[in-house]
């Protein structure tokens, strides 16, 4: 996995060639980052077909806007940010969920029941998979994005903060909400 930051010489050259219209050079960059860009989109929309479509759109937008990309920042973070923005916009256009921020989100956490112990050990694997999928869909795209970017994509809080363009504290509170929510729902499955 590539760490964010300055590009290596090879990447800087690929970006420069892409800027000059070399689509083959851009293809190399696509190969390099496609999996994680799809992962970011998937973390938000939670649908594979939509995520792949959004990832393609992400790369096309990136190609069109390469002249605006400043080489001082990380190309990968720039890409993931485009992907996250497109995915969140897509999700909002669908209008399926209400997004909670700040105190509203904290109040929601307060309404969740609390429990202790390993809640998942008694649940069968297929049931757990189905319930987990459903529980993720019940989250807002912002909350789902932070938990999946952290747990599946392995991003640090700072990276998530960069990609989703929100303060680090917001990343922490969203993660807390998402974890508490998922744990509670899964515990209910385990208890049945």
């Amino acid at each position: 996995m590539r760490t964010p930051g300055r590009q290596d010489g090879d990447e800087a050259e690929l970006i420069e060639r892409s800027r000059k219209g070399d689509s083959a050079a851009f293809g190399v960059l696509v190969e390099r980052y496609q999996r994680r860009v799809v992962g970011v989109a998937l973390a938000v929309v939670h649908n594979q077909d939509d995520a792949i479509e959004l990832a393609q759109e992400t790369f096309v937008r990136a190609y069109e806007n390469l002249s605006k990309f400043e080489s001082r920042s990380s190309f990968s973070t720039w890409l993931y940010r485009i992907a996250a923005n497109l995915a969140i916009d897509f999700w909002r256009r669908e209008g399926r969920h209400v997004v909670l921020h700040g105190e509203d989100a904290e109040n929601e956490i307060g309404k969740l029941p609390t429990s202790s112990g390993d809640s998942f050990k008694e649940v069968s694997r297929s049931e757990l998979s189905a319930r987990l999928k459903q529980a993720l869909e019940e989250l807002t795209p912002e909350h789902r994005a932070v938990i999946l970017l952290r747990e599946v994509e392995g991003m640090s809080y700072d990276e998530i903060s960069d990609v989703l363009q929100c303060p680090r504290g917001t990343v922490m509170s969203r993660l807390h909400y998402a974890r508490t929510h998922l744990r509670t729902i899964l515990k209910d499955v385990g208890g049945n």
Partner: peptide, 27 residues
Amino acid sequence: ADYSTLGRNLRSFAPEPSLAGFSSAVV
């Protein structure tokens, strides 16, 4: 412990979309 198990499950059940032909479609 629940958080740790939750993380493992999320990684374990994370879908792996097929990316065959993805880059050529973008190009």
